[in-house]
Computed example of a mutant assay.
Amino acid sequence: MKIGILAVQGAFAEHKAKLEKLGAQCIELRKREDLDGGFDGLVLPGGESTVQGKLLRELDMFQPMKEKIEVGMPVLATCAGLILLADHLSNDEHVYFGTMPVTVKRNAYGRQLGSFHTIQEMKGMGEVPMTFIRAPYIEKCEEGAEVLAEVEGNIVAVKYKEQYGLAFHPELDEDDTIHSAFLESVKKYKVLK
């Protein structure tokens, strides 16, 4: 099983280490040709969504990556990755991939000082640690988007088809539950395609 990890900016190395520990083979996606390497799942890491969106277009990676998501490739998107998937941002006019029917608020908890850690219930996964760093949250889900977790009344994790959108950083905690669930969806996708 091979996972492509967007590696143009942001916290991709931590995702790679966690997925490799769980037995996945990972390739770093840095240029257009990397998308031809044949992979079964995609990770969109935290970082700076505006910079990531700009680089994806400049490197001619945007459209082919969007097409992979649209045909059902499983995606694990954390923090900035969630912003890239959202079809609406409440406090920004940009839309990037727009493949997940959710409205997301960028930097919803404020700047770096608004960062925090908690342990909360995640639907179908039990309690998981959640680390929020300059995090967004989901203000609204449209039809088909399933809420997986809330913190203090704010939606922080959703699933739409095979796309997981998380406002937090599971790659920064010891717990492997979320990455394991993602790999399970990749296994199912591989069988079906």
Rank of each mutant, 00 (worst) to 15 (best):
A13C: 07
G124Y: 05
E174Y: 06
A24W: 11
M130S: 04
N107A: 14
F97M: 09
P45S: 14
V147S: 10
M100D: 01
V8S: 04
D173Q: 06
R30F: 09
F168V: 08
P64Y: 02
V128T: 06
F132G: 00
E33P: 05
A17P: 08
C26S: 00
I138S: 06
E14A: 13
A80L: 13
M1V: 05
E162T: 12
A145L: 09
V75T: 08
K123E: 15
A11R: 06
T50S: 15
V158D: 00
Y109D: 04
A24G: 14
Q52V: 12
N107K: 06
I178D: 04
I133V: 14
L183N: 04
G72K: 07
K105S: 13
G10M: 01
L192P: 06
V191M: 03
A149S: 13
R111N: 10
E33T: 08
G81S: 07
K66I: 09
Q163S: 04
I133M: 07
K31P: 05
T103G: 08
M1K: 05
T177G: 04
L166S: 01
A167V: 03
V43L: 09
G41Q: 12
L22W: 04
Q9V: 02
Y137M: 05
Y160W: 11
M130R: 00
K161L: 09
G46E: 10
L172E: 01
L22G: 02
I5S: 07
N107M: 13
P64V: 05
T78M: 06
H169D: 07
N91V: 09
S185A: 15
P136H: 00
S115V: 08
Y189K: 00
E146T: 12
C79G: 12
E28N: 06
G110N: 03
A145H: 03
Q112T: 11
V191W: 01
I155A: 00
L183M: 02
I119D: 10
G4N: 09
L82Y: 00
E58C: 10
L35R: 02
